[in-house]
Write a protein that binds this DNA or RNA. Structure first.
Lengths: 339, 339
DNA sequence: TTGTACGCGTTATCAT
DNA sequence: ATGATAACGCGTACAA
């Protein structure tokens, strides 16, 4: 006979079989009553529920997933969570997935794309129903493996016409264009670029520089900040920018956090923002609008990004093909006091 | 015969069986070569590795976990991640677990303890090897279920001598005591309390009030902020505090983010911090030391908290009993410019 | 509407 | 050091 007959009340978890015995039904009927009650006689469902209550049964999703080949698990890979840029997106993904009955396997993988491949391989062994990847640059082997596995994939936070599968993001280069164009039109000519070294930030920088280079009399100096971007790194970077020649009259930062630091440092040095120096950020983090001076920045809808990513995945898993596999959420300028 | 013989190169993932056939070995030997190479002849291991490479094999951890009753999965339940307080802890947990070969199932559950029980039940169906719970107040049914399942549990971010299993945190009440005592000793008598409504923040408030009430001539007014705590809510809360009587000469905030907002609002109203008004925060978030004025606050080691939680869990899972199941990480005052 | 037989892909256990 | 066999707990497919 099966185990589970003569054991105590402890430790070993009750199985479907135990519930079935308690209810005087077959385990298959119990399974149906739990997963698809509509096709089971109401009275039977009630009996099952009672037995579940009595036994303290909790389904074993490992077994269920193995049998059904559906894990209701979504793997999410992000480079960092303590830099404020991704947390809203992650929480949106988590919320949306939870509502649709999925769990989130979160992996904080850093910014190195070679380690990403190994990491994703271990995640794939969990047999997730879908995966969210940050960015569009992935090892070729990884891409191949993903395509081969026919696994729904959403790449986020960047833009390409040729995603692995689906994508929701925006163009960092164009966002960079916009920042530079805005300050150029305001009459600024001596620029400072305060930047972190991650791939997508660099794209924005390239975008900004491309615009600046269309202007003959423009000059710019640069300072690099580490990761994660913090107020401190913003202040220190600003110090370095102000020590260079020509002293900038406008500083673009790769994030609002750096911008906030830059503004504080300028004030500490007696430089008025924006009268003597314009400062722009990126991201429209929650403090940007409420800082003094409020921070001019480029906003993106971080929450919606996560929501759409999760929705696209859940839809595709459930057989609903996306009308448009590539979603450009765009961005918009928030003109405020700092520039 | 088993499936997997006559199929194309696509979609269906290769199994241990496929690798075994390729290598001319039994699947059991392949399994051993992969999980415990030490007990397999080196030459055999090499043959296996070659076959793995050739087939593109990725283990199926659902099946493996089911068979071995070990999932190498840790469930983590936190109330929020977009309030900056928990992200370092979560990233520390994720990092530490990854190093030890575990994955993190992250669930953002909000602050309601009744929904927590349901949520944890679904998490338990994944058969995690351990679970991290934020706080110490959980539904009785949940506690019972956890104890019954004999699952290693770490409660974090709070303190009690009687945890479900293990705990790493600190006393919020005493942290509240410390803040109030500090300002009292500085000579302040008219207090403002700017506070969010979550359980642990309220404990800190109680702690602060308990100290204030030891002082006859002390008065205090309160303002409540919503969740998540943001700069905006800090400013708005400060506005309300300043409109009350008596106008406080010292404001304690339930987080550094609120404190930052409070300071900005005070400055905007022409009130000098700290000369006319002292402001204290909590948490020592990364900007606290670098803000102007720098923020006086109570620091806790958020990263270490996550690290220890993950380590205690992994240790216990692997049979290493914790020397001390309850770890009080404490807190310390960071006296800076704002108070 | 309910039940039976079997397979999901792996590891434990025992045998060789 | 390697192999054969039997679980692990559930869902699919079909039968009744």
């Amino acid at each position: 006979m099966t185990r589970g007959k003569q054991r105590g009340e402890y430790a070993v978890a009750p199985t479907l079989e135990d519930v079935a015995r308690e209810a005087g039904l077959s385990s298959m009927t119990v399974s149906r009553a739990l997963n698809n009650p509509a096709i089971v006689r109401p009275a039977t469902v009630a009996r099952v529920m009672l037995a579940v209550e009595k036994t303290g049964y909790i389904p074993n999703l490992l077994a269920g997933s193995l049998a059904s080949r559906r894990s209701r698990l979504i793997a999410v890979v992000v480079p960092q969570i303590n830099n404020n840029m991704f947390v809203d997106t992650i929480q949106a993904i988590s919320d949306t997935l939870a509502q649709r009955g999925y769990h989130m396997l979160l992996c904080v993988g850093g910014y190195a794309s070679d380690s990403e491949a190994a990491l994703v391989a271990t995640l794939l062994s969990r047999k997730p129903d879908g995966i969210v990847l940050t960015g569009i640059h992935h090892a070729a082997a990884l891409k191949k493996r993903l395509i081969n596995a026919a696994l729904p994939v959403v790449e986020i936070w960047d833009l390409t016409p040729t995603p692995i599968d689906m994508l929701v993001g925006f163009s960092h280069e164009k966002a960079g264009n916009l920042s530079a164009r805005f300050l150029l039109d305001k009459g600024h000519r001596r620029f400072g670029l305060l930047w972190t070294g991650d791939q997508r930030a660099l794209l924005r920088k390239q975008g900004a520089i491309a615009v600046l280079q269309t202007c003959r009399e423009c000059q710019f100096v640069e300072a690099e900040a580490g990761l994660p971007a913090t107020l401190r790194l913003g202040r220190e970077g600003m110090q370095r920018l102000l020590a260079q020649t020509p002293v900038p009259d406008a500083v673009i930062c790769s994030s609002d956090t750096l911008a906030q630091g830059a503004i504080l440092e300028a004030s500490a040095q007696g430089i008025d923002v924006p009268r003597q120096l314009a400062v722009m950020g990126f991201g429209d983090l929650d403090f940007a609008a409420w800082h003094s001076p409020s921070i001019t920045t480029v906003a993106i809808d971080r929450w919606r990004l996560g929501e759409e990513a999760a929705t696209m995945l859940a839809d595709k898993i459930e057989g609903i093909m996306p009308t448009e596999p590539v979603r450009d959420l765009g961005f918009w300028l928030c003109e405020r006091q700092s520039a």
